[in-house]
Design a protein around this nucleic acid. Structure first.
Length: 495
RNA sequence: GAGGCGCUAGCUCAGUCGGUAGAGCACCGCCCUUUUAAGGCGGGUGUCCUGGGUUCGAAUCCCAGGCGCCUCACCA
């Protein structure tokens, strides 16, 4: 990409000619009184004859996205935030300096125009320009009008160009905004309080993941970008905020893929006097309403398939899912030798075969073989305690927890559980994590003494959940890559 | 981190056997007062991702590197 190309020079020369004629190519004194959608809504129903009776002047402003010129007259298509609108220019009829402006206007510039409405021969509602002003000169050339901009690297690096060339991209992010806005309203209406907890934490906690590290100079303190807000949100429940939620970024120092961006947005919420069963109901209600609100239907198309958000969603325990999707018998699902043999059969590497927890073998088979089959929204419950260090044990079977994950299109969308509020048990589970860390698992959790202390003060029975917002937005906007729902995804610097 | 594919004009893309760069849009000049990808005539405006190598000669072949995408690994 050349720094100074000939086109830019030509455009700079045009800006120079405007300045010579006493015209400021970056005029900020002119403000439009109308937007494209105003004019369209109000005057689209009128015929050409009826429009002749409208003596009012209208002014709009916007970016030039097409010019069709006929010498002494021409059509220009302007775009503002509400849509596109055609204007009609005629030499000698556009104010003092209109002709100079027109001569030096090209696709990409911003114009401010005023005039009256009429209908063209092809019956398009159009503004006949009486005053023409340039308000911003673009000195970079826009991508062409047919193919637009398709190079994904440029699309992500220069999202602003992407949005100009591919206006449908803006729709994805409008929907994303609607989704987040809907979620906020949903929880506020249920008496939840939105809070903000630390992004920079001395002890990263609340998830198993590698963190980003940073350093505070004045305190000479190493800090980690948070991998989850969980432990702080539960401290707030201890403090008496019985219903809290936070929608914000988490940071995990791991690989990048169509499903992973190093910073991603997570909704986490905690509800005292509720169990994971309550959250199953809440979650399917929330997603059902979101689909209806944002997509207009409980059935949502995604990458050529249909996903139904009709209630109730499918629901299985982890072990049931192995029976249903892999055809194992109930006995086989708890038969270590059988399950290890299955792992071998599918060529999964299993470390420490002699000591490995039964639950971890089940999880391994689930993740490798079952997860991808869960296209329709499906709750999987009863996760092994060994992989759930912050979850409450099931009252009937302490080897599993009162936890669920929600899968849609083979992807984990939500993770929720009745929270462990027994400080003694919590401390023991942290100790177990510390041991795993010491034996080489650099994703194992750190001991958080203060969090244990908080539990010692007493946390009411509580259920909590995290929902990956980016992945949810992908599903509801039919986007194949997480980068398509993040405005500025992480990329290596260019050159 | 590993493998596969890609990178040529502002954009979208061709480029044969290695012979010295080309099309549409955009842009520049001229014509044109109702277009919808307006039209007609004329004009290529280039670090062929970067650096080496082979060769009389490299966009093309070889080596190294960069960036991106996909798959896998890790993970949500």
């Amino acid at each position: 990409m050349t720094q100074e190309n000939i086109y830019k020079q030509q455009r700079l020369e045009k800006a120079g000619r405007l300045i010579e004629a006493g015209i400021n190519p970056y005029n900020n004194r002119l403000h439009p009184e109308h937007v494209a959608s105003d004019l369209r809504e109000k005057y689209e129903p009128l015929t050409g004859e009826e429009l002749e009776g409208v003596t009012e002047d209208f002014s709009i402003a916007g970016r030039v996205i097409a010019i069709r010129s006929f010498g002494k007259a021409g059509f220009i298509k302007l775009r503002d935030r509400t849509g596109e609108f055609q204007i009609f220019t005629q030499k000698g009829k556009m104010g003092e300096q209109g002709d100079v402006v027109l001569k030096n206007t090209e696709v990409g510039d911003f114009l401010h125009v005023a005039g009256k409405l009429f209908r063209t021969k092809t019956n398009e509602l159009t503004l006949r320009v009486e005053k023409l002003n340039i308000i911003t000169k673009a000195i970079e050339q826009l991508p062409e009008k047919w193919h637009g901009l398709t190079d994904v690297e440029t699309r992500y690096r220069q999202r602003y160009v992407d949005m100009i060339a591919n206006p449908e991209v803006k729709e994805v992010f409008k929907k994303r905004s609607q989704i987040v806005s809907f979620i906020r309203r949903y929880f506020e209406e249920k008496d939840f309080l939105e809070v903000e907890t630390p992004m920079m934490q001395a002890i990263p906690g609340g998830a198993k993941a590698r963190p980003f590290m940073t350093h505070h100079n004045a305190l000479d303190l190493d800090l980690y970008l948070r991998i989850a807000p969980e432990l702080y949100l539960k401290r707030l429940v201890v403090g008496g905020l019985e219903r809290v939620f936070e929608v914000n970024r988490n940071f995990r120092n791991e690989g990048i893929s169509t499903q992973h961006n190093p910073e991603f947005t997570m909704l986490e919420f905690y509800m005292a006097y509720a169990t994971y069963e309550d959250l199953i109901n809440l979650t399917q209600d929330l997603l059902n309403q979101l689909a209806i609100t944002v997509c207009g239907s409980e059935i949502v198309g995604y990458q050529g398939k249909e996903i139904s958000f009709q209630k109730p969603f499918a629901r299985y325990t982890l072990v049931e899912s192995l029976e249903k999707h892999l055809g194992y018998t109930k006995e086989q699902t708890i038969d270590r030798a059988f399950l290890l043999n299955e792992c071998d059969k599918h060529h999964f590497e299993v470390k420490n075969k002699d000591t490995i927890d039964l639950g971890i073998i089940q999880i391994l088979l689930f993740e490798e073989l079952v997860e991808k089959q869960l296209i329709s929204p499906t709750f999987i419950t009863h996760y092994p305690t060994s992989v759930s260090p912050l979850s409450r044990r099931n009252d009937e079977d302490g080897s599993v927890t009162d936890r669920f994950e929600l899968f849609i299109f083979g992807r984990e969308i939500a993770n929720a559980f009745s929270e462990l509020n027994d400080p003694v048990d919590q401390k023991e589970r942290f100790m177990k994590q510390v041991k795993e860390r010491e034996s080489g698992d650099d994703e194992a959790m750190y001991m958080d003494e203060d969090f244990v202390t908080a539990l010692e003060y007493g946390m009411p029975p509580t259920a909590g959940e995290g929902i990956g917002i980016d992945r949810l937005v992908m599903l509801l906007t039919d986007q194949p890559s997480i980068r398509d729902v993040i405005l500025f995804p992480v990329l290596r610097p260019d050159k």
